[in-house]
Lab assay of single mutants.
Amino acid sequence: DKPLMPYMRYSRKVWDQVKASNPDLKLWEIGKIIGGMWRDLTDEEKQEYLNEYEAEKIEYNESMKAY
């Protein structure tokens, strides 16, 4: 599988927590909350997800070359 983009990594990490805090919200409403949370992160906080993505992207590209 292709590596997940940084925002999607963050979304997967916080989804269950946001859903548990807001059990009556629809999926798109939860997505909207998470989008706002992502925008509110500092560049340093986002960098963690970007670093994970870049590392996985290198691994993915290497595995595709071998294939």
Rank of each mutant, 00 (worst) to 15 (best):
R12P: 01
L41F: 01
A55P: 10
K57F: 06
L27Q: 15
S63G: 11
D1M: 03
I58H: 12
Q17G: 08
A55S: 11
E44H: 09
L25S: 10
R12Y: 04
N22P: 00
N22C: 05
Q17I: 07
L27C: 11
K65M: 08
P6L: 00
E45I: 06
R9A: 15
G36T: 12
Y60N: 14
K65G: 10
K26T: 13
G36S: 11
E59R: 13
A55R: 12
E48S: 11
Y67L: 14
V14L: 03
Y10N: 01
G35Y: 11
M64D: 15
G36A: 12
D1E: 08
R12G: 06
K2V: 03
M5I: 12
I30F: 02
I58E: 13
T42G: 12
E54W: 02
G35T: 11
D16T: 05
K13T: 14
K32P: 05
R9C: 00
M37G: 02
D43S: 10
E54M: 06
G35L: 13
N51G: 07
E44Q: 05
N22L: 14
K46S: 03
E59A: 14
Y49W: 05
R39I: 04
Q17M: 09
E44Y: 09
L41M: 09
A55L: 09
V18I: 08
G35Q: 13
A55C: 08
P3M: 06
M8P: 06
A66W: 06
E56R: 03
D1G: 09
E59F: 06
L41C: 04
A20D: 13
E62W: 04
P6F: 00
L50N: 06
L41I: 04
M8A: 15
L27G: 15
L41N: 02
R9H: 10
K65Y: 08
N61V: 12
K65D: 09
N22G: 02
K46P: 01
R9F: 02
I30S: 02
Y60C: 13
L50H: 13
L25C: 10
R39D: 14
T42N: 11
K26W: 00
E44V: 08
Y49A: 04
K19C: 11
E62T: 08
D16L: 04
V18T: 02
Y53W: 08
K32C: 05
D43Y: 06
Q47Y: 05
L4T: 06
E48Y: 06
Y53H: 10
Q47I: 06
E54S: 05
S11V: 07
Y10D: 04
K57N: 11
T42S: 14
L4S: 11
R12N: 10
N51T: 10
W38S: 04
K19N: 02
W38N: 03
L50S: 12
R9E: 02
I33V: 08
R9L: 03
K13E: 14
R39G: 07
D43G: 07
M37Q: 04
Q17L: 06
Y7C: 05
A66G: 14
Y10R: 01
V18A: 02
I33Y: 02
L50T: 15
P6Y: 00
E45D: 10
K13S: 13
Y67D: 14
M64H: 12
I30C: 03
Q47E: 08
N61K: 13
A20P: 00
Y10L: 00
R39W: 01
K46F: 00
K2Q: 04
A55I: 09
A55Q: 13
L25D: 00
M37K: 06
D16Q: 10
K46A: 01
M8V: 09
E44I: 07
P23K: 06
L41S: 03
D43K: 13
R9T: 09
P3Y: 06
I30W: 00
I33Q: 05
I34F: 00
W28E: 14
A66I: 09
L27A: 15
K19G: 02
I34V: 15
M64V: 10
A20R: 13
K2S: 05
R12L: 09
L25E: 01
